[in-house]
Structure formats: C-alpha cells, structure tokens
C-alpha cells in the first residue's frame, strides 16, 4: 500500500470538474482512532491516510446526503461525490445501490485494497491507556504500529478484527479507480464462530446473550456506524407506535438486537463497522454472521456483490425450504 500514490490519485480526483468533494480517512487525534475527512481542495490531500486503523465504513456518509439518492428522471446532473472504499465498504455501496439509497452516477469510488483493520478492543489490550495518536501500517502480512517513538510488529491474528481474518473480499468489488495494487486473498483463520456457538445448548446460548444484552447501553452507535442502517427515522427509536420502550433493560435490548439483526438479514456486508463502533464490545457480528450464513446456505444469496440483483428481503422462490412448517 503506497500512501503517496493514493494521495496523488485523490488529488487528481479532486481536480476534476465533476467531483464535488472526497470522503476519506484522516489521521486521528487520539489513540488508534482515525477520523472521516471531507476534502474539497486538492491541496489538502496530505491529510488523507489509509491504514489498519481505517475501520470505519465511509459509505455510511453517503446515505446521510439525501440528494445522493436516485434522483428524479431528467433532474439536472449534480456533482459527484468521491469516496474511499475498502473491499467491504464497496460491498456496502453496492447494497446501497441495490436499495436505491445512492445513485451510482453520483458516486466516484476510490478503491483501497485492504489487508485488515484493527479491532479496537484487541489493540486496547495490547497497548493499554494509549492516548497519543498512533500510526499503523501493513508489512509482509503483519501489522506494524509506531507508538511512543517505537515500532512494534504484531501478527494479524492478534490485532485485526475477527471478520478481517477470513475476509472474502479484501479488494473493492466496485471502484472507479484503484490507485494501489490489489492484495491477495488470504485466510488467516477460518472462523467457525457461528457453528461453534451453535454447538452450545440452548440454555448456554441464552446465558451468553443474556449477559451481552445486559451489557448493551443502547447508544445506537452500532446502528449509526452501519452504512445500511440509514433510515432517517429508525423504527426502533420511534415513540408512536413504540415497538421498543426507551428503557435500557434486558427485554428492550434483546428486542433491539433481534430487530436490528433481522433488518440486516441479507443486507449486511459483514464489514464489522458496527462491532468496532460499540463501546462495550457487544459481538454484533455473531448475529450478523449467523443470518448471513443462513441466507447464503438456504437461499444462495450474498449481498453487496451485484448491483443489479433484486434485494433479498423482497424476493422469494416458490421452492424455498420449509422444514419447520407444521
């Protein structure tokens, strides 16, 4: 990954007439965080970064802009928005296109092949109490950190997000330019999390989730970080009718998590942004991956790959399986 190449490419993009601004990652001001950066000026591309710390999914900003959504036929063309996308981010964009959340014509995707982003929980444990901004990069399959004037190299398995260890699409599936070289698909670990969890007894599964659901503080950070949770008025926060009560307790939290996961069934692209955004380490991906597996195994569907596929939750086949029906 050549950061200079990427910045130069971003500069070129920004000098184009049809591009309004570029959404990218900027160096953070605190610990292992990076911050989203909105650039209009080609002269400012030095502020851009791309590293294992760029875990947030910038596609989330696209749907906040309502006029990026499919415009009316014949409406005057507006400026395009450039956005930096990792493999998983690009899948989110594809899914947004499927759902007409964004208009492909209005986007300019800068593809960033990615070798995995760090899990904030894991690095926090490796480097407790770090407040100074940290720099990081990939080197020969490992992750390197520069912190306190020192360079520390750690194997991916120890610091990367679990989802990145068996990432299926490290390279963007949709991009207008790809300034840097593609990376090779590598499986650092074959994750059996879902099937292993299923081995547990029903009672044990509930004990686990009971603890988890009790931890959740319902801050909605997971929902806000998700590029596909872009409802302007989330059903689960609405007062009338109140699907959920506002109180933070086991019942409402459990219902929130079931509902959120269900809303993302066949839509979640497994970027892991939700899980990384959670301040209390709720394993949101376990629910997401469970449903993603069901959707794939039963219906052969994977979201975020084909912009022309009909949305999964609006489709069916007359011969869909029905083994549990009385």
């Amino acid at each position: 990954m050549d950061l200079e190449k990427l910045r130069a490419a971003a500069g070129n993009v920004l000098s184009r007439d049809d591009i309004g601004y570029l959404i990218g990652w900027g160096v953070g001001s605190y610990g292992f965080r990076t911050a989203p950066l909105f650039l209009r000026d080609a002269g400012e591309v030095h502020r851009l970064t791309f590293s294992p710390l760029c875990g947030s999914n910038l596609a989330v900003f696209l749907t906040m802009e309502y006029d990026v959504a499919a415009p009316a036929k014949g409406a005057a063309a507006k400026e395009r928005i450039a956005v930096m996308v990792k493999g998983c981010d690009s899948r989110a964009v594809v899914q947004q296109i499927v759902e007409r959340g964004v208009d492909r014509e209005r986007l300019f995707l800068v593809g960033c092949p990615c070798e995995g982003v760090v899990d904030p929980g894991k690095v926090e444990k490796k480097f407790p109490g770090t407040v100074e901004p940290v720099r990081a990069g990939w080197e020969n399959g490992a992750v390197v950190f520069w912190t306190g004037g020192q360079k520390v190299t750690l194997p991916g398995e120890e610091v990367l997000s679990a989802g990145c260890l068996d990432c299926s699409h490290p390279n963007p599936v949709l991009a207008d330019i790809m300034p840097c070289e593609e990376v090779k698909l590598r499986r650092l670990a074959a994750r059996e999390d879902v099937s292993m969890f299923e081995q547990k007894s029903s009672a044990d599964r509930w004990l686990y989730w009971k603890r988890i659901f009790n931890t959740c503080i319902r801050c909605y950070a997971c929902r806000n970080a998700c590029p596909l949770c872009y409802c302007s008025d989330c059903l689960l926060e609405r007062l009338s009718p109140a699907w959920l009560f506002r109180s933070v307790n086991l019942s409402e939290n459990a219902a929130f998590h079931l509902a959120r996961a269900f809303h993302l069934a066949g839509r979640c692209v497994e970027c892991g942004a939700c899980e990384r955004a959670c301040p209390v380490e709720v394993p949101l991906m376990l629910l997401n991956r469970k449903l993603a597996r069901e959707v794939y195994e039963r219906y052969g569907f994977q979201p975020g790959l084909d912009p022309d596929s009909p949305p999964f939750q609006a489709a069916f086949r007359p011969d869909d399986s029905e083994e549990f029906i009385l």
Partner: peptide, 17 residues
C-alpha cells in the same frame, strides 16, 4: 416463509426454545 425461517433461526441462535 422466508422471513420466518430466518427469524426462527435467529431466535433459536440466541437461545429461545
């Protein structure tokens, strides 16, 4: 049928009988 197949999987996964 699709929706409830998935919902049931989800419920069972979280430990609902």
């Amino acid at each position: 049928r699709r929706r409830f197949t998935l919902l049931r999987e989800l419920l069972v996964f979280t430990g609902v009988d």
